[in-house]
Amino acid sequence: MANSYREFSNQVRSRQRRRAQRRVLSMALLAVMVLGVSGVITVGIQAVTGWGAEEPASSETIQPGISGSVLAPLPMQNPVVDTNETGFERMGPVQQTGDYTIKTLSYEDIVQPECGLVDSTKYLPGVVFLGDSVTEGLDLYENPAKGVATVLGYRGAVPSDIVNRKSMNRYQSETVVATEVALDIIAQKQPKAVYLMFGANALATSADEAVEKGYFGYYEQMITSIREAAGQDVEIYIQSMTPVTTDYTNTNLNNERIQRINQQLAQMALEQGCHYLDVYSSLVDDSGGLNPSYTTEGLHLNSSGYGAWMDYLLRHVAYSSDLPYVMGSTYYLADNV
């Protein structure tokens, strides 16, 4: 009986030992599996992100703020090396040596340059000349514009007359041939180009600065009104005031003042997107005043003066491949014949 009990007890302990061994083996196997999975995950993360990789040893110490340290090399090139060691914190406009000053255009830069000679018989029919009594003479004396272009010259006219739609008389010699509003004629004609010349009447009565400001203010409004009447594509040419002879008696209209006004007219043309024509220089003699052979009384032009004026205008039309240039002239094309 005792032997049977001992045998039974031994069997029980034997079974307990086997179960314990199996539990230990199971735990060990589970630990090995967990470690294996963790290793696989770690390798995967390193492969994707590069985490944990050792950085290569370098003999060059990279300092904070060095511009070369943040520039990636271009393909097929060596890494960027900043030999000047210019830090971002030390970079700024004060260290830039280039000249970035915006240039203010001079009078000579604004003046419309000479181009080829335009055929007046083909170009001028689509042109309107608008101005005072100096412009009126274009339809009085023999010159390429007479009877070809539309000449709207009104005696005593100033820019405010145009803006305010004043009804004015147009003369042919001493005969009134029309009483009209200039903007209405421009709207009717729909010209491809409008040539402006004003100043003598506006400035002759006074040298007051306020008068000049009013003149330029209305001149700008006149340009806007012309574009509204003729369309935004119309080419507008602002002509300089013409000179007077050196012995002209009206002290308010002296060449020094006229040249100063012309300088301002050029700047206004630039600002308003118009062409500027230096008619003044085409009419002066060596003394710097109006050539006496171009005038009878020191201000208004005669036939020779209008001829010189028109020759200048026809050589200073803004270039276009569609213009009818005279045969043999620069830019002439046979297709324009």
Rank of each mutant, 00 (worst) to 15 (best):
H275I: 00
S167M: 10
S282C: 11
I102L: 09
Q239A: 12
Q232A: 08
Q188V: 14
M197D: 03
Y325L: 05
N3M: 03
E60W: 03
L71F: 09
G307N: 11
I223L: 00
V128T: 08
S282Q: 06
I238F: 12
V34H: 03
R23F: 13
I66F: 02
V337N: 14
E142A: 02
V48H: 08
T121C: 07
P64M: 06
L152D: 01
N143D: 05
P93T: 13
L265V: 10
P73I: 05
Y218C: 10
T296R: 11
V163N: 01
A28L: 04
P159A: 12
R23N: 12
L323T: 05
R23L: 03
L277D: 06
N250C: 03
M1Y: 10
P113T: 06
Y325E: 02
E89D: 06
P159W: 00
T83Q: 01
L270W: 07
V111C: 14
R22C: 07
Q221F: 00
V80D: 09
T242F: 14
Y141D: 15
V70K: 10
E174C: 06
R165N: 04
Q172S: 15
T42M: 04
L152W: 04
R170T: 11
P159Y: 00
G44I: 04
D132N: 15
Y171G: 08
T135M: 04
E108T: 08
L314E: 10
D109H: 10
Q77E: 13
Y294C: 11
